[in-house]
């Protein structure tokens, strides 16, 4: 019995032939890899600063244009999304959460009003704070407080709209 509209090709790529037989995993492999990755942190922080500068220029455009430019909003979303994606890998999860909150706010939004511009500004200020003070991890007790404030801001906006 065959299927006329489908074809099944049995395991065309079996990479087990390209790796040597398994052996007990070196328990230090992840620590070493993460330590290697951590050497990129200064470079990462400098790239975040550049991204935040670019986002700042987009924010200024939004302010002057009344918040109605979808391309600028998309660029802002993209900047926040990029920072969010990498922050956790460099032990800046709080920064990732702040940018995640901004992504949540900007996602699929074609325009924002003056209140929206304030929301973006607040997130940007929070991100600058995390970077300038080099706040690693979740920022102790202050980190969750900061995130709660951002959530409250978004909640208030949702109620208003």
């Amino acid at each position: 019995m065959t299927r006329s509209a489908s074809e099944i090709i049995p395991c065309p790529t079996d990479l087990r032939t390209k790796v040597r037989p398994p052996r007990p995993l070196d328990p230090t492999i992840f620590e070493r890899a993460d330590a290697e990755a951590a050497t990129l942190t200064p470079d990462y922080l400098s790239s975040v600063s550049n991204s935040l500068e670019g986002m700042g220029r987009n924010l200024a455009r939004l302010r002057s244009g009344g918040g109605g430019d979808p391309d600028t909003l998309k660029a802002l979303f993209r900047g926040a999304h990029d920072i969010k994606g990498h922050a956790g890998s460099f032990n800046y999860p709080l920064l990732g959460e702040v940018m995640g909150s901004l992504c949540h706010y900007l996602r699929d939004r074609p325009a924002i009003d003056a209140r929206g511009v304030k929301i973006v500004e607040t997130h940007m200020r929070a991100a600058h704070l995390v970077v300038s003070r080099d706040i690693k991890g979740m920022g102790g007790a202050k980190g969750p407080e900061l995130l709660a404030e951002l959530a409250q801001l978004l909640g208030a906006d949702a109620q208003h709209t």
């Binding site: 079996d14 890899a33 993460d34 969010k84 994606g85």
Partner: peptide, 19 residues
């Protein structure tokens, strides 16, 4: 994301062990 060495290793192993 975020990527960690351990999770990347797990995905590579998944590709190799479960063709």
């Amino acid at each position: 994301k975020p990527v960690s060495a351990r999770r990347m290793y797990e995905r590579l192993n998944a590709v190799i062990e479960h063709p």
